[in-house]
Amino acid sequence: MIEGAYDLAEDKGEALAVEGVSVWLSGREILHDVSFSLHRGEFTGLIGSNGAGKTTLLRTILGMQVPTTGTVRIGGSPRGAHGAAVGYVPQKILLDPDIPLRSRDLVGLGFDGHRLGIPLRSKHRRILVEEMLEAVDASRFADSRVGTLSGGEQQRVLIAHALIRHPRLLLLDEPLANLDIRSEYEVVELLSRLAEEQGIGVLISAHDMNPLLSAMDRIVYIANGRAASGTTDEVVRTEVLSKLYGSHVDVIRIHDRILVAAGHEHDGLPAHTEPSVWAIGGRS
């Protein structure tokens, strides 16, 4: 566990604290002693390759997975009765274009989808939905059928759906997967702006750190179930990542991009992997 020296001003308030979390699933240790914290207004990237433990970590923060050891605090209080404190956009949501549902209906369900009964016409609810759609720049397609929108547009609606109850923390699982480069950029821009404007902590998982570099305040790098956190400059360094991977890796900076490459085979890789160089951070 390598904790960066960098810390944000205390008065911004803690959005999330993960302390010494380990998770064992069917005899395997998926996460090992993971600790990091996140403040309101911060935009943090959770970076790691597929199977590194990102989704398990997000599920643990959400309370859908009970940690074997360690604690998770949300907004300063222990996880559990947090209710609306966390917003979450799951991975690969596929919305059926045949379902009659407008963007504004989906956002509205983010507000009161857990309550019984039919939504009554209320001015408060309508204004709230309107505001959220505006905040994510989705007013243009508020009345369109969500299933027929493009990937980037759907992502905006899902973010509004997650934000409408004003959570302190917003988690997004691989929101950039399946987006074209332009929408990728727009979604990152939007999330970074929302973090600041609404004063929420944003934690976004990705297998590639490059699209997030310009916006990230902090990074949580995860490999082999171990995590290192801090600023990009503190974490994405040869010494830090080599320790995390348990073997030598090189961090290569080309223009504004970062590539993480291993020179040697290490135990997490299948033995038959042919190329001796493999990229973790690079776009595949």
């Binding site: 699933l25 998926i30 390759s49 597929n50 199977g51 590194a52 433990g53 989704t55 398990t56 997000l58 599920r59 859908m64 799951p90 991975q91 699982d173 997490g268 890789l269 299948p270």
Partner: peptide, 9 residues
């Protein structure tokens, strides 16, 4: 229905 941990492939 919920994302699960997949093994490294």
């Amino acid at each position: 229905s919920s994302p699960t941990q997949s093994t490294r492939s």
